[in-house]
C-alpha cells in the first residue's frame, strides 16, 4: 500500500516498499519492548522458557559470532549486528505474508550498504590516526596502488547492495509472473518456490550481508 499526501496542489507519493520498512520497524520494536518487559520480571536463577529462551539464543549466538569473527575488542558492535540481521530477516521473509519486501527496492539496500560503508570509513579514520593517517593508508603497500585501493573500497557497498537487491527482487519478480501466468492452478507449484526464494534465499542473504559487514569492520579496526 502506498501513501499519497496532498499538500496544496502538489502530490507526494510514498512507495509501498518504504511504508513496509516502517512496518518492519514497528514489528521489531514490539518484539524488543516485549523482550525487555519479560526480562525485568524474569528470575535469574531459573532457566528461561518460551519467549525469553528465544531471545537468549539470539543474543548469545550473535555474541559468539561477533567474538569469533571480529575479536574481543569489537564486542561493542554486537547490538548493531543484531539489529542489522533481524531487520534483514524480517524484511526478507515478509514476502510470505503478502507484504512487498522492503529490500526489493534498491533505495533500501543502498541505504543499508551506505550505513555500513560510513561505519567502516569512520572506524578507519579513528584507528589509523586522523585524516592524514587515513589518506596515507590508501598508499599502503606501494604508492602506485592508490587508485586500486580506492576502487576496492567503493566496490564494497556497490556489490553488497546489488547482491541483496538482485536476489530478493528476482524472487519477487518470478513469483509475481508465476502467479499471474498460472492463475487458478498456482498453488500446485508455488509453495516449493516460496520455500526456496523467500525462506532459504532470504535468510541466506541476510546472513551473508551480516558476515561481510563483520569481516569489513574487522579489517577496519
Amino acid at each position: 500500500m502506498e501513501i499519497q499526501l496532498f499538500i496544496d496542489e502538489n502530490q507526494i507519493i510514498i512507495p509501498n516498499t518504504i511504508v513496509n520498512t516502517v512496518i518492519a520497524g514497528i514489528i521489531l520494536s514490539i518484539l524488543a519492548i516485549t523482550a525487555v518487559h519479560k526480562a525485568k520480571k524474569a528470575d535469574i536463577d531459573e532457566p528461561p522458557s518460551g519467549f525469553m529462551n528465544l531471545i537468549e539464543i539470539m543474543v548469545e549466538s550473535i555474541n559468539n559470532m561477533v567474538v569469533s569473527n571480529m575479536g574481543e575488542r569489537n564486542i561493542k558492535f554486537a547490538p548493531f549486528i543484531l539489529t542489522l540481521i533481524s531487520f534483514l530477516v524480517v524484511s526478507n521473509l515478509s514476502g510470505l505474508f503478502t507484504i512487498v519486501s522492503p529490500t526489493s527496492d534498491y533505495s533500501v539496500t543502498l541505504t543499508l550498504a551506505l550505513i555500513v560503508f560510513f561505519t567502516i570509513q569512520y572506524n578507519k579514520i579513528k584507528s589509523q590516526g586522523g585524516m592524514l593517517g587515513y589518506m596515507k593508508g590508501f598508499a599502503k603497500p606501494y604508492a602506485v596502488m592508490t587508485p586500486i585501493n580506492i576502487i576496492s573500497e567503493i566496490a564494497n557497498p556497490v556489490s553488497m547492495s546489488f547482491r541483496l537487491f538482485g536476489n530478493i527482487m528476482s524472487g519477487t519478480l518470478i513469483m509475481g509472473m508465476l502467479y499471474s501466468a498460472l492463475g487458478y492452478f498456482a498453488p500446485l507449484i508455488t509453495p516449493v518456490l516460496h520455500l526456496y526464494f523467500d525462506i532459504f534465499s532470504g535468510v541466506l542473504q541476510a546472513f551473508i550481508f551480516t558476515m561481510l559487514t563483520m569481516v569489513f569492520i574487522n579489517n577496519a579496526t
Binding site: 556489490s159 546489488f162 547482491r163 537487491f165 538482485g166 536476489n167 527482487m169 528476482s170 519478480l173 541466506l204 542473504q205 546472513f207 551473508i208 558476515m211 561481510l212
Partner: peptide
Amino acid sequence: MILGQAVAETSSIYSLIIAI
C-alpha cells in the same frame, strides 16, 4: 562454502539485473 558461494554469485546477479 556457503559464504564463498554467495560472494562468487555476485557477477551472475549483475547480469540478471542488466537483463531485468
